[in-house]
Amino acid sequence: MAERRRRRKSWWWPIIESEPEPEPTPSPTLSLFSNSLADVSVMMECGGREKQRDLQYVQEYRPENGDIKHLRILLYGPVGGGKSSFINSVSTVMRGRTTIPAAASATTSDTSFTRQYKTHKIRKGRGNPKTFYPFVFNDMMGLEEGSDSGVRAGDIKLAMKGHVIEDHKFNPACPLSDEDPGYNQTPSPDDRVHVLVCVISANSSEIKEPILQKMSSIRETARDLGIPQMAIVTNIDTACGEIEKDLKNVYKSKHLRKKMKDFSSAVGIPMNCICPVKNYSDEIEIDDDLDSLILSARRLMIHFGDDFIEDM
């Protein structure tokens, strides 16, 4: 428990507070905090150690509440945030090879590619019988602007309480009710959501007001239920040219930090509950830098979720 309760380091560490003179024409590709070569060297060395520490922690995690077999993490957010891709990325890190348990789209669209409520388990190794890690991700339809498009905020609220059954196909025009076959009348503690995670792309423009209203309503319900909330920001490499050159520049990017702060202000999620990640997309081999960011986010989800289920 001491390890689990330990205060999480800011993901911006180490940043030197003194900034260089601003560029005459700032741009995402040139906007970096100034770190010395020694700082970067230490950061790279610490990153490798932290990846192994976080991987071991996630591999060895077990819920202490006997009524809970799987810590359940619900991913939600605007269309195109990368929810399904994040699930695939976690699976890739944990299995040590490219895996795609969740169907994801590589094309940009205003409508959600995911239509059903799906529970994704992460398998341990190979062989029979199959064994899985004691945490699951729930993927769902994305939020869209219209009242009759995308997943309805009310359906997400029902999912948090465990009332949505596996493979339920969301109907944007009609909310789920207790008379529908997709409604779980008697959810168990294992069916409930233990961590609510908002997923948003760093490439996205300002979040439109209709989506912000839906997100605010969802967050209020999670608050009332006591469910911990956090966020992950994806596509950090395509949002900033310097991060695309070297993923370690995530610790120094002024552009990304501003995006994070703007998102925090708009949605209300504190900065220390927001994690930057790059999903596996065009990589076919394991990358330690990608893994470190993904595992750091995954570790925080376990911390928050485990605290919640201990109090259930």
Rank of each mutant, 00 (worst) to 15 (best):
C46N: 13
G47C: 09
R49K: 14
E50G: 01
E50K: 07
E50Y: 05
E50P: 00
K51C: 04
K51A: 07
K51W: 08
Q52N: 15
Q52K: 12
D54N: 15
Q56R: 11
Y57A: 14
Y57C: 06
Q59L: 05
Q59A: 08
E60W: 03
Y61V: 06
R62I: 09
E64Q: 13
N65W: 03
N65R: 12
N65E: 06
N65A: 10
G66H: 12
D67L: 11
K69Y: 14
K69C: 11
H70Q: 09
L71Y: 12
L71Q: 11
L71S: 11
L71A: 09
R72W: 06
R72F: 05
R72I: 02
I73Q: 13
I73P: 06
I73G: 10
I73Y: 12
L74R: 11
L74Q: 13
L74P: 08
L75I: 08
G77P: 07
G77H: 07
G77E: 11
G80P: 06
K83T: 09
S84A: 14
S85L: 06
S85C: 05
S85R: 08
F86L: 15
F86P: 01
I87D: 05
S89D: 07
S89C: 06
S91G: 13
S91D: 15
T92M: 06
T92R: 05
V93E: 01
V93N: 00
V93I: 07
V93W: 01
M94T: 02
M94A: 05
M94K: 12
R95H: 02
R95E: 05
G96Q: 04
G96S: 03
T98P: 01
T99V: 04
T99F: 05
T99I: 00
T99Q: 10
T99S: 11
T99L: 03
P101T: 03
P101W: 09
A102Q: 03
A102T: 00
A104W: 01
A104G: 02
A104Q: 00
A106E: 12
T108L: 11
T111G: 05
T111W: 08
S112T: 11
S112Y: 09
R115I: 10
Q116E: 14
Y117T: 01
Y117V: 00
K118F: 06
K118W: 08
K118M: 10
K118S: 05
T119G: 13
T119K: 13
T119C: 13
K121A: 14
K121H: 15
K121P: 02
R123G: 01
K124Y: 08
G125N: 10
G125K: 06
R126C: 08
R126W: 09
G127T: 04
G127I: 04
P129K: 10
K130A: 14
T131W: 01
T131P: 06
T131E: 15
Y133K: 01
Y133L: 15
Y133W: 13
